[in-house]
């Protein structure tokens, strides 16, 4: 179910889990659109030579995944603020799961706060953050 107005939102509600496309092909498309051309994002070997575990999903792309997840849940939501902390690398071509939960609601203004977490298959947190989102009031 998608969210239309603030009346549809419940405190503690879990957003549908979003498994983002972290394939090398998609990351390259993103890097082109963002004008971020570092080989550490688009070349596993080059990234490993830098001491990284493989090519990295850019942090800005992880942040974009989080906003996309919110819009999938609430298509008319206006994402006003996304604040992310990168705890560990998100590696290209590996599987990740994004979860979100509503942790604050102001029904009068339509403002909600959401906790967001990117975890790997082992359940380890790679990125966490919060978003402040404006939902239509009616």
């Amino acid at each position: 179910m998608t969210i239309a107005t603030i009346k549809d939102v419940e405190f503690g509600e879990e957003l549908p889990v979003f498994d983002p496309d972290t394939s090398l092909e998609n990351v390259k498309k993103f890097a082109t659109a963002a004008h971020w051309f570092g080989p550490r994002f688009t070349d596993h070997e080059a990234a490993r030579k830098e001491g990284l575990p493989g090519a990295l999903v850019p942090g800005i792309m992880s942040q974009g995944f989080l906003a996309a997840m919110i819009h999938r849940w609430a298509p008319q939501a206006n994402v006003q603020n996304v604040d992310t902390v990168f705890r560990a690398p998100v590696v290209v071509d590996e599987k990740y799961h994004i979860t979100g939960v509503v942790t604050d609601i102001d029904e009068a203004s339509g403002r909600v706060e959401i906790d967001l977490t990117v975890t790997n298959d082992a359940g380890e947190t790679r990125v966490f953050g919060t978003a402040q989102v404006q939902i239509p009031t009616g």
């Binding site: 979003f18 990351v27 792309m61 974009g64 996309a68 819009h71 206006n78 996304v82």
Partner: peptide, 24 residues
């Protein structure tokens, strides 16, 4: 927007009347 998985056309479709940059 598309690479990030956005589905909302105001971010993905330049012909949408409310087309705009994804918020991040």
């Amino acid at each position: 927007a598309i690479a990030c998985g956005e589905l909302a056309t105001r971010y993905t479709d330049p012909n949408d009347p409310d087309f705009q940059a994804p918020p991040t």
